[in-house]
Amino acid sequence: MSDDREAILSRVRGALAPLHERAPLPVYDSEIAVMRSLIAGRDLAELFAERLKRVGGLTFTSPAELVAHLQAGQWRHGYCDPVLWPVLAPHFGPDFTVELTFDETRVDDYAFGITRAAAAIAESGTIILDDASTSRRLAALAPWVHVAVLARGTIFSDVTQAVAALGADRNVVWCTGPSKTADVEGILIEGVHGPGAQIALLV
């Protein structure tokens, strides 16, 4: 089948030809979509943690806290980005099994996945992942718990700033809390396809 490119473009031109003038692109300050009163005067890491909590996520400020949480939840088998492991390994006890490769044929074996975050957004409690910082897309997605290791200095104040900094990465994913659905009778359930627990580890 021949491609319909020319046919579509010519119909578009035909549809627009009778317009005497075209609607102009409005001039606006992106500030209009920023929750300034929420952000003003706040420490961004603190605000981020508060907003992440609001959407059902958790923030830890030390590896020890993280390990205690994983222990309490009985999440003992997981994946860790090999770049992060040298720093984190001393905090994990012998009852943990942490793999540095992710074998998708055993996708259900991994209770947690630890990968790096590229950045975050304080205003919305969003963790930003991209291809450059994520060692395996699947490891940040399939395990029940996702831990994103986030550098304090990379937190944007608001959505508008984060959009401006999108850059050239092929796959930027904003994660605002754990995976959710309300499809069944409008009841909120966390952990549909993605993580049921979203954690940020601030470093």
């Binding site: 959407v55 919305s124 450059a132 395996r136 990465d169 904003w174 605002t176 959710k180």
Partner: peptide, 22 residues
Amino acid sequence: AQDLTVYTEFINGPKSTAQPDG
């Protein structure tokens, strides 16, 4: 009624060469 939907993906082409998945 969410500030942002949970996942917002910005896709700029096929996966990067260094990325194993996708």
